[in-house]
Nucleic acid binder design. Structure first.
Lengths: 107, 107
DNA sequence: ATAATATACCTCGAAATACAAGGCTTGTCA
DNA sequence: TGACAAGCCTTGTATTTCGAGGTATATTAT
């Protein structure tokens, strides 16, 4: 049975995070966990393939940087193309949300 | 490529429709199309397996009835168990919606 | 010094979901 | 008669997510 916690709109969320600041994978997972009060948790097995896809499609670029602590991190940066994709996915989310709520308000 | 119109929360929507009135499959598709202004369209290949699952799990019961026009229709009726499932799925939808919007309001 | 834990990245395979594309039957209308 | 709408259904495929691993380095506890 698939988890009910399923993320479903992963790329939208990832793109939005990167519109705020460049981030690395592990950081995104922590940021999400905090921001949505553990309503869902993005799993690494979900995130990293998504990031690779976004990189391949040109929505993000990546660069490696060593933290003060000495660990290497892979930062992702949103491109102009990525911003357009974010705008489009946000629009689609609003439409989807509105449609579900329209149905739920029936009766 | 999977459609962007994906329904994702099919059972929630179906359960809610049936909380308003007993309905048959074809009718649900038309009702949804109308209610959410064609934002998404539930496909038959999606709906009928869902209905079968809900029936198997006891969330709905089904009965056949012949319309005035003479065509046979399979009506679905929401059970008490189905109402509980609807309440739970609605709660989860609200949480999910809130969490996504919390992330989108960052920055 | 050594063990354990946290940070940080990644991959593979299984399970779930939705849809396209069909099929079947009966009724209506030209 | 033929075409189309109503109405139900199934199979195969593509996609998505996640569980469960693996690897490596730095910190902390023992």
């Amino acid at each position: 049975m698939r988890q009910k916690q399923a993320m479903e709109h992963t790329s939208l969320v990832v793109l939005h995070l990167l519109s705020v600041a460049d981030m690395y994978g592990y950081e995104m997972i922590a940021a999400l966990e905090k921001r949505c009060d553990s309503t869902f948790t993005m799993k690494e097995g979900t995130l990293y393939p998504i990031l690779r896809g976004l990189e391949n499609s040109g929505a993000v670029t990546a660069y490696r940087q060593v933290s003060p602590a000495g660990r290497e991190r892979k930062y992702y940066h949103l491109t102009e193309r990525g911003r357009k994709q974010l705008a489009e996915e946000t629009r689609q989310w609003r439409a989807y949300e509105g449609a579900i709520n329209a149905v739920l308000s029936m009766g």
